[in-house]
Lab assay of single mutants.
Amino acid sequence: SPQLSSEIENLMSQGYSYQDIQKALVIAQNNIEMAKNILREFVSIS
């Protein structure tokens, strides 16, 4: 969805990798808010 694409772009601009974002979305069943929480908790931005 376009909204999801812009959310993904936004997260990538914050330093998350596309791969990590995709993984979080799978775990969160495409719930972007939950995916963000997963990324915040489990992915360290280098």
Rank of each mutant, 00 (worst) to 15 (best):
residue 3 Q to G: 09
residue 20 D to A: 07
residue 12 M to E: 04
residue 21 I to E: 01
residue 2 P to R: 09
residue 21 I to A: 07
residue 2 P to K: 07
residue 29 Q to V: 02
residue 41 E to P: 03
residue 19 Q to R: 13
residue 5 S to N: 14
residue 5 S to D: 11
residue 4 L to M: 07
residue 6 S to N: 07
residue 15 G to N: 02
residue 46 S to H: 02
residue 22 Q to Y: 14
residue 23 K to G: 12
residue 37 N to T: 12
residue 5 S to Y: 06
residue 1 S to A: 07
residue 21 I to P: 01
residue 16 Y to D: 02
residue 8 I to G: 02
residue 13 S to F: 12
residue 11 L to Q: 00
residue 28 A to N: 08
residue 42 F to V: 14
residue 23 K to H: 09
residue 35 A to I: 01
residue 11 L to G: 01
residue 18 Y to D: 12
residue 43 V to R: 14
residue 24 A to R: 02
residue 45 I to H: 15
residue 7 E to W: 03
residue 36 K to W: 00
residue 14 Q to S: 11
residue 16 Y to R: 00
residue 25 L to F: 07
residue 36 K to A: 07
residue 38 I to W: 15
residue 16 Y to A: 04
residue 4 L to W: 05
residue 37 N to P: 09
residue 30 N to F: 06
residue 38 I to E: 14
residue 23 K to T: 07
residue 20 D to T: 06
residue 22 Q to N: 03
residue 26 V to W: 03
residue 35 A to V: 02
residue 19 Q to M: 06
residue 7 E to P: 06
residue 15 G to H: 05
residue 28 A to G: 14
residue 11 L to D: 02
residue 44 S to P: 12
residue 39 L to G: 05
residue 31 N to H: 04
residue 1 S to T: 05
residue 18 Y to G: 10
residue 41 E to H: 04
residue 9 E to C: 13
residue 18 Y to F: 02
residue 40 R to H: 14
residue 26 V to L: 11
residue 30 N to H: 11
residue 37 N to V: 08
residue 21 I to T: 02
residue 33 E to W: 04
residue 29 Q to P: 11
residue 25 L to M: 08
residue 18 Y to I: 12
residue 7 E to N: 08
residue 25 L to P: 01
residue 30 N to W: 04
residue 13 S to W: 04
residue 35 A to F: 03
residue 43 V to T: 15
residue 21 I to F: 00
residue 33 E to I: 09
residue 40 R to C: 04
residue 34 M to E: 10
residue 6 S to D: 07
residue 39 L to W: 02
residue 31 N to I: 01
residue 14 Q to D: 14
residue 44 S to Q: 10
residue 41 E to D: 10
residue 46 S to R: 13
residue 13 S to H: 10
residue 23 K to P: 00
residue 46 S to V: 08
residue 11 L to T: 01
residue 40 R to G: 12
residue 9 E to D: 12
residue 30 N to L: 01
residue 12 M to F: 06
residue 20 D to H: 05
residue 35 A to K: 02
residue 17 S to P: 10
residue 29 Q to H: 13
residue 24 A to H: 01
residue 34 M to G: 15
residue 45 I to C: 14
residue 3 Q to A: 05
residue 35 A to L: 03
residue 3 Q to D: 14
residue 27 I to A: 14
residue 33 E to T: 08
residue 3 Q to I: 09
residue 3 Q to M: 15
residue 14 Q to M: 14
residue 4 L to V: 12
residue 16 Y to F: 10
residue 10 N to L: 13
residue 9 E to M: 14
residue 35 A to M: 05
residue 40 R to T: 12
residue 27 I to W: 07
residue 12 M to W: 05
residue 37 N to G: 10
residue 6 S to G: 08
residue 1 S to C: 08
residue 33 E to V: 09
residue 15 G to S: 04
residue 41 E to T: 11
residue 40 R to M: 06
residue 3 Q to P: 04
residue 45 I to L: 09
residue 30 N to Q: 06
residue 20 D to Y: 01
residue 9 E to A: 13
residue 24 A to M: 03
residue 21 I to R: 03
residue 6 S to M: 10
residue 1 S to P: 02
residue 24 A to C: 07
residue 13 S to G: 10
residue 23 K to W: 14
residue 11 L to N: 03
residue 13 S to E: 11
residue 23 K to N: 14
residue 6 S to R: 12
residue 32 I to E: 07
residue 9 E to L: 08
residue 26 V to P: 01
residue 44 S to K: 11
residue 27 I to T: 14
residue 30 N to S: 07
residue 10 N to F: 14
residue 28 A to H: 01
residue 40 R to P: 15
residue 24 A to Y: 03
residue 2 P to T: 13
residue 11 L to K: 01
residue 9 E to Y: 03
residue 13 S to A: 14
residue 37 N to F: 03
residue 21 I to Y: 05
residue 33 E to Q: 07
residue 26 V to I: 12
residue 32 I to R: 11
residue 1 S to I: 03
residue 12 M to K: 12
residue 9 E to R: 12
residue 36 K to D: 05
residue 33 E to F: 04
residue 21 I to C: 07
residue 10 N to T: 08
residue 8 I to M: 05
residue 45 I to D: 15
residue 1 S to G: 04
residue 22 Q to L: 15
residue 44 S to N: 14
residue 39 L to E: 05
residue 25 L to N: 02
residue 36 K to R: 11
residue 6 S to Q: 12
residue 5 S to K: 13
residue 42 F to L: 15
residue 16 Y to I: 01
residue 18 Y to R: 12
residue 28 A to R: 04
residue 20 D to P: 04
residue 31 N to Y: 02
residue 22 Q to K: 15
residue 29 Q to D: 15
residue 40 R to I: 06
residue 36 K to G: 09
residue 18 Y to Q: 10
residue 23 K to V: 06
residue 7 E to M: 10
residue 7 E to C: 12
residue 11 L to S: 03
residue 24 A to T: 01
residue 10 N to I: 04
residue 42 F to R: 15
residue 44 S to E: 14
residue 9 E to P: 02
residue 23 K to A: 10
residue 46 S to E: 11
residue 15 G to I: 02
residue 12 M to V: 11
residue 41 E to N: 11
residue 13 S to P: 03
residue 11 L to F: 03
residue 15 G to Y: 00
residue 14 Q to Y: 06
residue 20 D to I: 04
residue 36 K to M: 02
residue 28 A to M: 01
residue 12 M to L: 12
residue 14 Q to F: 13
residue 17 S to I: 14
residue 36 K to S: 09
residue 24 A to K: 03
residue 5 S to P: 06
residue 38 I to S: 12
residue 17 S to Y: 00
residue 29 Q to M: 06
residue 30 N to G: 07
residue 17 S to H: 00
residue 25 L to Q: 03
residue 33 E to K: 10
residue 36 K to Y: 02
residue 16 Y to E: 01
residue 8 I to Y: 02
residue 4 L to P: 03
residue 10 N to M: 07
residue 44 S to M: 15
residue 42 F to D: 15
residue 29 Q to W: 01
residue 43 V to G: 13
residue 19 Q to C: 10
residue 36 K to C: 00
residue 17 S to C: 02
residue 12 M to A: 07
residue 33 E to S: 07
residue 26 V to K: 13
residue 25 L to I: 10
residue 36 K to V: 05
residue 14 Q to N: 07
residue 19 Q to N: 06
residue 43 V to M: 15
residue 40 R to Y: 06
residue 32 I to T: 11
residue 41 E to Q: 10
residue 39 L to H: 03
residue 45 I to N: 15
residue 27 I to L: 13
residue 44 S to R: 09
residue 46 S to T: 12
residue 7 E to S: 10
residue 22 Q to A: 02
residue 1 S to L: 03
residue 2 P to N: 10
residue 21 I to Q: 05
residue 44 S to T: 12
residue 39 L to V: 06
residue 19 Q to K: 06
residue 15 G to V: 01
residue 22 Q to M: 11
residue 45 I to Q: 12
residue 11 L to W: 07
residue 36 K to F: 02
residue 4 L to R: 08
residue 23 K to D: 13
residue 5 S to T: 12
residue 14 Q to T: 06
residue 43 V to I: 12
residue 14 Q to A: 10
residue 26 V to T: 13
residue 29 Q to C: 04
residue 26 V to R: 13
residue 9 E to G: 12
residue 8 I to C: 05
residue 24 A to V: 05
residue 38 I to T: 13
residue 26 V to Q: 12
residue 22 Q to G: 01
residue 30 N to E: 04
residue 43 V to K: 15
residue 5 S to G: 04
residue 30 N to M: 07
residue 40 R to A: 10
residue 26 V to E: 10
residue 38 I to L: 14
residue 9 E to W: 06
residue 37 N to W: 05
residue 37 N to S: 10
residue 9 E to K: 07
residue 29 Q to R: 12
residue 12 M to Q: 14
residue 39 L to M: 04
residue 31 N to E: 11
residue 36 K to I: 04
residue 4 L to F: 13
residue 10 N to C: 11
residue 1 S to K: 02
residue 24 A to W: 00
residue 19 Q to H: 03
residue 34 M to I: 15
residue 10 N to A: 10
residue 32 I to S: 10
residue 8 I to F: 08
residue 4 L to E: 05
residue 23 K to E: 15
residue 38 I to K: 13
residue 13 S to C: 14
residue 21 I to W: 00
residue 28 A to D: 12
residue 24 A to D: 00
residue 21 I to H: 03
residue 22 Q to C: 05
residue 44 S to I: 09
residue 7 E to H: 09
residue 25 L to R: 14
residue 3 Q to W: 05
residue 42 F to W: 15
residue 22 Q to T: 15
residue 10 N to Q: 10
residue 10 N to K: 13
residue 6 S to K: 13
residue 40 R to V: 08
residue 29 Q to I: 00
residue 10 N to G: 13
residue 45 I to P: 11
residue 35 A to Q: 03
residue 27 I to P: 15
residue 1 S to R: 04
residue 10 N to Y: 11
residue 45 I to E: 15
residue 3 Q to V: 09
residue 46 S to Q: 14
residue 46 S to A: 08
residue 16 Y to T: 03
residue 39 L to F: 00
residue 6 S to T: 11
residue 12 M to I: 12
residue 2 P to E: 15
residue 40 R to W: 02
residue 22 Q to S: 05
residue 14 Q to G: 04
residue 15 G to Q: 01
residue 14 Q to R: 05
residue 44 S to C: 04
residue 14 Q to E: 13
residue 23 K to R: 14
residue 15 G to K: 03
residue 34 M to H: 11
residue 32 I to C: 08
residue 3 Q to Y: 08
residue 22 Q to W: 00
residue 40 R to D: 14
residue 43 V to W: 14
residue 4 L to T: 09
residue 5 S to I: 09
residue 31 N to W: 05
residue 35 A to H: 00
residue 42 F to Q: 12
residue 46 S to I: 00
residue 39 L to Y: 00
residue 8 I to R: 02
residue 31 N to P: 01
residue 30 N to V: 00
residue 2 P to H: 14
residue 12 M to T: 07
residue 15 G to T: 01
residue 28 A to L: 01
residue 20 D to E: 13
residue 13 S to R: 09
residue 19 Q to A: 10
residue 41 E to M: 02
residue 4 L to I: 09
residue 15 G to P: 02
residue 21 I to K: 03
residue 31 N to S: 07
residue 19 Q to E: 11
residue 42 F to A: 12
residue 35 A to R: 03
residue 11 L to R: 02
residue 27 I to R: 15
residue 25 L to S: 05
residue 45 I to Y: 12
residue 11 L to H: 01
residue 33 E to P: 14
residue 36 K to L: 01
residue 28 A to E: 02
residue 7 E to F: 08
residue 16 Y to K: 02
residue 3 Q to L: 10
residue 31 N to C: 00
residue 18 Y to M: 12
residue 6 S to Y: 05
residue 7 E to Y: 07
residue 43 V to D: 15
residue 41 E to C: 02
residue 26 V to F: 04
residue 3 Q to T: 09
residue 13 S to I: 09
residue 25 L to V: 06
residue 5 S to F: 09
residue 31 N to A: 00
residue 15 G to R: 03
residue 19 Q to Y: 05
residue 29 Q to F: 01
residue 13 S to K: 14
residue 27 I to C: 06
residue 44 S to H: 10
residue 16 Y to N: 02
residue 5 S to Q: 08
residue 4 L to H: 06
residue 45 I to S: 15
residue 21 I to S: 06
residue 1 S to W: 02
residue 13 S to Y: 05
residue 41 E to W: 04
residue 7 E to G: 06
residue 32 I to N: 03
residue 17 S to V: 11
residue 17 S to K: 03
residue 38 I to F: 15
residue 16 Y to W: 09
